[in-house]
């Protein structure tokens, strides 16, 4: 009797497999069902696990850093301390200028346009999260709604809230593939579209005639012009009318631990909807 070697029923039978694989699959399917049926409970269960992972990551980083060159580390520390002092002085000078301008021009109408937002801890982040998304530990109970903008330390915009649970929310980062946002660069504030490149990076295509250089700060609209990152590389092909800008976010998304969520009133969510038009929003 002839036997089909490719589709042998005995070779692919589940009965021939070790129980470990079947148990692993059953475990995953069970968790998947749990997430679909009770997503809030699911994240309450897994948040402590991610906290342990964070602690483990911090400890391991400290351990490996202990092997570093102490002289080099001390030198870097001194440079950073100096920069910190300079920035603090500049900040004080700007505050003084702002106070003087307010005295001359009058206080701006800040009432009703508060820049405060909802602070939330980050549960998961890249690179563990492969889709350039964050899970944050605040949800609709704290007032978070889909489409609100998410800011990192220093008021750097990093993404937009894409789905909300009772106590948790998902944030899609601007670096997520297919995410699109309008940005500005250069002295003449040239407008262009920034797209996510994955792994925390951004990229953009701009006309070759644009006067931009490596190191230029890229801004996005918000309450004012907000820096989102800086140009780290320009890929300029002479045969192409445009050049590609590689943009590094101003904030290290791989170590972000808390964010601020607030409504900015910009058209970010429209951009987000455009970026995710291939799928239905939950």
């Amino acid at each position: 009797m002839k036997r089909n070697a490719l589709l042998s029923s005995t070779s692919v039978s589940l009965g021939t497999l070790a129980c470990t694989g079947r148990f692993a699959l059953a475990f995953s399917v069970l968790l998947l069902l749990l997430r679909f049926l009770t997503p809030n409970l699911f994240w309450h269960l897994f948040t402590p696990v991610f906290r342990i992972a964070d602690a483990f990551s911090t400890e391991s980083r400290l351990f490996f850093n202990s092997f570093g060159d102490t002289a080099e580390l001390a030198s870097q520390n001194e440079i950073l301390s100096n920069k910190n002092t300079v920035l603090a002085n500049e900040n004080q000078a700007l505050l003084k200028k702002e106070t003087d301008l307010e005295a001359i021009l009058g206080s701006p109408a800040t009432v009703g346009n508060s820049v405060s937002g909802i602070s939330a801890g980050v549960v998961t982040r890249p690179p563990e999260s492969p889709y350039d998304t964050l899970v944050i530990a605040e949800g609709s109970r704290a007032g978070i709604a889909r489409g609100q903008e998410v800011f990192g330390n220093g008021g750097v915009p990093i993404g937009v809230v894409s789905s909300v649970l009772t106590d948790f929310s998902h944030v899609t980062l601007f670096s997520s593939p297919n995410m699109t946002i309008t940005g500005f660069v250069g002295k003449s504030n040239i407008s262009f579209l920034i797209t996510g490149a994955g792994a925390g990076a951004l990229q953009a295509s701009i006309a070759r005639s644009a006067n931009v250089a490596v190191g230029d700060i890229v801004f996005v609209p918000g309450p004012g012009m907000l820096p989102i990152g800086s140009i780290t590389r320009i890929d300029d092909d002479p045969s192409s009318p445009s050049m590609t800008l590689r943009i590094m976010p101003a904030l290290n998304l791989f170590s972000i631990s808390w964010v601020v969520v607030r409504e900015t009133g910009t058209t970010l969510f429209d951009a987000f909807l455009h970026a995710s038009s291939t799928s239905s929003l939950p």
Binding site: P130, S163, S279
Partner: peptide, 24 residues
Amino acid sequence: TEPLVPLAVGIFADTLYYVPSVGT
């Protein structure tokens, strides 16, 4: 040694990190 593990781990990873609105 365990052919089902890639599928199981893939489901587990997407259970944790996948957001349908990402567009992927």
